[in-house]
Structures are given as structure tokens and as C-alpha cells.
Design a protein around this nucleic acid. Sequence first.
RNA 1: GUGGGUGUAGCUCAGUUGGAUAGAGCACCAGAUUGUGGCUCUGGGGGCCGUGGGUUCGAGCCCCAUCAUCCACCCCA
Length: 421
Amino acid sequence: MQVKAPRGTADILPGNTAKWQKIERIIKEHLESFAYQEVRTPVFEHTELFQHGVGQGTDIVSKEMYTFNDRSKRSLTLRPEGTASCARAIIEHSIYGGVLPVKWYYTGPMFRYDRPQAGRYRQFHQVGVEAFGSNSPYLDAETIILMVEILSALGLTAYELHLNSVGCPVCRQSYRQSLIEHISPVKDSLCPDCQLRFQQNPLRVLDCKVAACHEAIVGYPVIHDSLCVECREHYAIVRTALTDSNVDYIHDDQLVRGLDYYTNTAFEIHIPGIGAQSAVGGGGRYNGLVQALGGPYLPGIGFALGMERLLLALDTLGLGESEAPGVDVFIALMNDRFETQALKILNKIRKAGIRADKDYTGRSGKAQMKYADRLGAKLVILIGDEEIEQGFYTLRNMQTKEQLQLDNEQLVDSIKQIMAN
RNA sequence: GUGGGUGUAGCUCAGUUGGAUAGAGCACCAGAUUGUGGCUCUGGGGGCCGUGGGUUCGAGCCCCAUCAUCCACCCCA
């Protein structure tokens, strides 16, 4: 019997980890330049955190969570997203009582029991940011700018930023009402899914891809017209701030968030041409979240980027190249009597910060050269009878084919000197 | 959860109306006068043909199931 990785999970092998590390490095630099600090929360949490923090009615909670009982019969869930854990930690450690806003970022695996597809896995990785303690629309703009800056730095400039405001609970309630009034007369002509959506969350009907549903609800009210004065003002400032920062966006009336603690700004970034799972990142404001989890009123905003989707986009657009690390120096033994000698040199040059390796499979001298070449070695130190007898090392420059005879003292300096050129 | 496509060597794939020891390229290992890489040439190892049933004298080819994967729906990162 052969055991394979579970459905929807993947091994990220060394050929790919170089790409991951490169992306992670670029993202981290940007996050820190925007004054975000890393937080690390558990990979599993009490199930109720997500029930309250993501929402009972969401697909995530109702059918996509990896929930299990531990040996003490506690119901735990592998985190399907990162925001709820951050909010929980903010409350648990009374962070809200300190200097505000707090700007946190996190990175790591998330888990959703979903049907795997290109760009969608059961274990996937997100980088996310959360800023708690400010309701400033300029913070909304900054957050969006951060996301856009990251994409640009990765070379993903062909994105579409969708932006909307879902208002506050008050104005959304009135919008909901006007939407119900609009759809109600035609609800029987909607597709079965939409009939259900209409009952549970009428806003979701706007998302439906079925053409007939679109036609049935044509002329539907848009949320923008229902926003209260403050929400309208908030959204206007966000838009202006983005425009002033030369960030292009598409105002998208159909971008909605179903739950009450999602408020005001909502955004998603899509990269066309990478398949159905084109959203590489998304986020929004959630002024009601901390309260919903039992904390004080504490506004917040954040976003998350999907690592696998960023990789998919980079690969699809041919931007994903990244060099796997090799070695600087390879030690080739022409006689295996000199193993201990080789080890000493390895120790020495590695301590000097030089990447080095040797053969451990008993290859012939010729094969060792071939192996050195494949590892990308710029230099090869040859050790044979002649070298040992006469007390020197042969240093071969693989590019120029020049060979130098060096003594033990000269070795490290010479290597560094050649490497510097 | 629904619909459709695909599973043959580490990778990319051939495999003729079901017919004998299942092939190629790349990769890997070795050799081409024995202490020297990239190119070339020669040779070699490596496949329960995803898995389990079934039909048949005979299955990589046909049927069923299952698993995995891909595409779309759905959802979102």
C-alpha cells in the first residue's frame, strides 16, 4: 500500500520552495515597511471561534471546516482563515487597551474542505494583515495600497481591483429591505440556488451567474444608494485617497459581504487569465467583529493574499522563475583516502560563509566534476595524491578553467577574492 | 456537493480493430586509454500501464467501482 498526500494537499518540493521564499521575502519587506508586525496564532482553535467570527451562515462554517473532537472531547477546528484568530488574540491579551492601531500580519496554512481545483486546495497558504483600532478611511486606503504594492513588487501589475462599500449594519438593513422589495415580485423566476439565497441572504442573489436571474432582477437597487451619510462619506474618502495615490479600481456594486460585522469597505483583487480561481487577494473592514467575539467595540480592517494563487499567477504569466540555491565551492577527491582532509576544508570554508559541498556516493573523479557542475559550483577544490604529497590544494575556476595551486592559508582568501569578481 | 475530461518510467508523452518479453525523448548511473565538468557517442538501471473487481483463450486498450488529478458550477484567498 502506498500512502499519498491527502486530497487537496501538496508537497512543496525544493524546486518550488525557492519561489515561495522569494515571494515571502518580498511580501514581508512590504508589510514591515507599512509598520506591520508578525503575529503567530495556533493552527487550530475552538470551533465556536469560527462559528461566531466567520459566521454560521457562511459556506466556510456550514460545510468547509475541518472540525474534530480532541481526546478530551473539545470541539476544535483547523483554521479556515486568519482574521478570527487575530481578533481572538486581541481580546484575549487585552491588546485593545494599548497603543492603537495595532497592525499585525500572519502567514501560514489554512484549511477548508472544498473541492480541489486549480488554485484551490484543502490546505492552502495565506498571508494576511489586520489593523485594529482605527476607523479612518485613510487606513482603508493604506491597506489597499499595501496589497496593490505587493502585487506590483511581485510583477503582477495586470490585476483588477474591485471595490465596494457594504455600509454599516444600519444602512445595510435598509438596503436589504429595499432589495427584498425589489426581488420579491419576481422571486419565483429565480434559479433554485437564488430562491434559497433570497431567504437566507438576499445580497447574495446579486452574485448569481445565471443569466436568467440577472434579467429577473434587472434594475435592482445598489447598496451605494442606501448608504447612510457617514458610510457614504467614508467610502468617498477611500475612493479619493486611492485616486490620489494612482491606484486604479473598479467600483463593483455586486461585491458584497454577507455578515453583519463586515462593514463599509470591501475589496477583492483578481488576476484575469489564471482560471476560475482568479481572486488572489481580498479583504475589507470588519468593525463589528471584535464585539461579536465578546470584546469591546474595536474597528478593524484587513486583507489576505492566497500564496498558491500568487504562484499560479506568476507561473501562468511566466514570471515565476527563481534560482534554486547551489554551492560556491565543491571539493572533489581523486582518492578517497583524503576524506578527513576534505572534511576539514569543508568545515573551514563553510565557517567563512562559503556555500560548499562534496560527493558522498563514491563517484569517480570525472563524475564528481559533473556533479559539481550540476550543483552550480563556481570553484572546485581538487585533492589527490599530488596535492597531499606536495602540500597544496588545486583550485579550479569552473568558468575560466584556470587552476591555481594554493596552500592552506591562502585558500579561503583566494576563494573569496575569485567569488567577488 | 453537482457535471465533464484525464490517470502508461522521476518528468513529458507514444502505444495501431483487445494479441506474445510495454516504447521514445528528457532526467539518472556508467564508459569513450585509467586526476578534471558543460557538447557528442555508446551502454545500463528503472513501469503491479492509479487501485480493486469484471468480460475474454488473451486487457495498457472494453465494462463497473474506487482513488487521484484537471476543467466548469459553487465559493472564496
